[in-house]
Nucleic acid binder design. Structure first.
Lengths: 233, 233
DNA sequence: TTATAACTATGTTTTACAGCACAAAAATAA
DNA sequence: TTATTTTTGTGCTGTAAAACATAGTTATAA
């Protein structure tokens, strides 16, 4: 048995879904071109308008994909957790990034040149199918999100965000505390509201004993209630 | 030269982007399973919750993909023109439709069983790549739309919709009249506003000599102005 | 340590937009 | 034709949420 490089062992163990689809010869080329980068909290990973050159894979930490809109307001489009892939869509569309990505907390990102990824997609059907599924899932989520963000009221939007955070990043050992500590501003940008209203609505939820808040630690006490609020008013 | 069936000639001539990617043997199977259906104005093509079984291709007419939200309000997610493909995303995600589709005006739709499409995608790289590009484009548009619909004000949203309609369906011989006659309600559902506000804002644009309105005929007089309104206020 | 900045909290004011009511006009049916 | 429904157009009212103001609180830097 040959000794594996650290990079290759990461590919094999962390990115197994992707790695398992490759032929032996492909694995060699991919491993050779695989790079790892660290990003500090709040550091920008890529910006709108830049040329998409890398397929990225979040190995550790949390990342937000967002878009700056009118009047300095920003909208969080989706959240990335380990191990998820991002940064590839714009390349497939042959256009510059229309979104930006930043680390919510310090993050480790593995990356591969998109040119190489494309090359392998064109040869390897399993890999192509992998991206078809990824894109289909993201598109479904994006379409649903459009309606949620435009039609629900503030309370419903925030309730939904809290549930999304739980589904996405899970909870701590107590089974209640959200495993992500977000600034109120990010919570607002995720829920399409102003920071003041995010704070205000969190307070309301606390008063109604639906959640407890301690700084950025949020516990979901009454999930059933939150679901109802998310669904209706 | 063998005589071609009508169906096969439609595949070859209308759906050439798709058809050209197929091998000869594939063409035979696809042609055998290709069906054509007509839909009347306002007729529903598929509904939310249904199982996605067909890849559809709009051959004639105009189709809206929409999603019913809170309190009977409906949001138009995207518009389909000939020759565009739709109805396949949910199948790739192995989930029921999360959107619905209906004919805005009488439409002709060609369809193929998704099971067959998947089978060919798994064998044919060109076909897989075709869907990767389709999905990537739609996802980019959807993400941009989310921000536009949530952050822009009424005037900006309506201005944007009018420009989208022009880009999507083009104009008549005069170079001004939009080649689509939509109900005010649809225009509102496209722009995330109430019907009254769509009507009101159209009136404002008319008074400001940005457009002219004659029933459902809309002429864009001052496109530059419309772009400015769409971008800022 | 103190200073400075960033974040959180809450009260007040303003406004964009929904909701409703009611006509008029147009389309569709009888 | 007339009757009935659907669509379009406007005015009025209420309210959800933004905008603004101000202060306390927690990080970060000097």
């Amino acid at each position: 048995m040959v000794k594996k490089s650290t990079l290759e062992s990461i590919l094999q163990e962390e990115m197994s879904d992707f790695w398992a689809l490759l032929e032996n010869e492909e694995k060699r080329v991919i491993a050779e071109n695989f790079k790892i980068q660290n990003f500090k909290k709040n550091e920008i990973i890529y910006s709108e308008g830049e040329e998409p050159l890398q397929l990225m894979c979040l190995l550790k930490g949390k990342v937000k994909i967002y878009k700056d809109g009118v009047g300095g307001r920003s909208q969080i489009i989706r959240l990335i957790r380990p191990v998820q892939y991002f940064g590839y869509r714009a390349y497939f569309s042959r256009e510059p990034y229309v979104t930006a990505a930043a680390a919510i907390e310090s993050a480790t990102v593995g990356s591969l040149p998109m040119s190489l990824v494309e090359e392998h997609i064109r040869k390897n059907n399993g890999l192509a199918w992998f991206f078809i599924k990824e894109l289909s899932n993201d598109l479904g989520i994006s379409d649903a999100r459009t309606v949620n963000l435009t039609q629900k009221h503030i309370r419903g939007r925030l309730a939904e965000s809290l549930l999304v955070l739980k589904e996405n990043y899970g909870v701590e050992e107590d089974g209640l505390t959200l495993n992500i500590y977000m600034a109120r501003e990010d919570l607002a940008n995720l829920s399409n509201m102003t920071t003041s209203n995010a704070i205000r609505t969190l307070s309301s939820f606390t008063n109604e004993k639906i959640i407890t808040v301690d700084g950025r630690r949020i516990q979901i006490i009454d999930e059933e209630r939150l679901r109802k609020i998310s669904k209706f008013g």
